[in-house]
Amino acid sequence: MASLDVALKNAMNIDGAIGVALVDYSSGMTLGVAGGTGEIDLTVAAAGNTDVVRAKMRTLEMLKIEDEIEDILITLGSQYHLIRPLTGRTGKGLFLYLMVSKSRANLAMARHQLRTIEESLEL
């Protein structure tokens, strides 16, 4: 079981990682961030992506699909953004948000590692 700081540090060790945040999607507030660049404010990214997660959850509800989001992949020209809601009992209402460089990352590996980090994260 990894604590929040360890989890964020492990996420930054994923090849090509640019930044990572743990976000509460009921408020859009971050519980922790790591990485990021001068131009990218992770708290802004967290607040904005909260709306992405909420929109998808609402869509599933409207479609009456009784399932949960495992992860969301957003592909940009130069980056991948991965969103992974926490599944543990203590992580309800939270999601991990990872930005990786498209040229430096292995998407399948990054996704796998993020799942491992999410599963071992204990708050």
Binding site: S27, G28, M29, T43, A46, A47, G48, T50, D51, R54
Partner: peptide
């Protein structure tokens, strides 16, 4: 209750 407070604060 469901307002995105972080976005509001930004």
């Amino acid at each position: 209750d469901s307002v995105n407070v972080a976005r509001l604060h930004l």
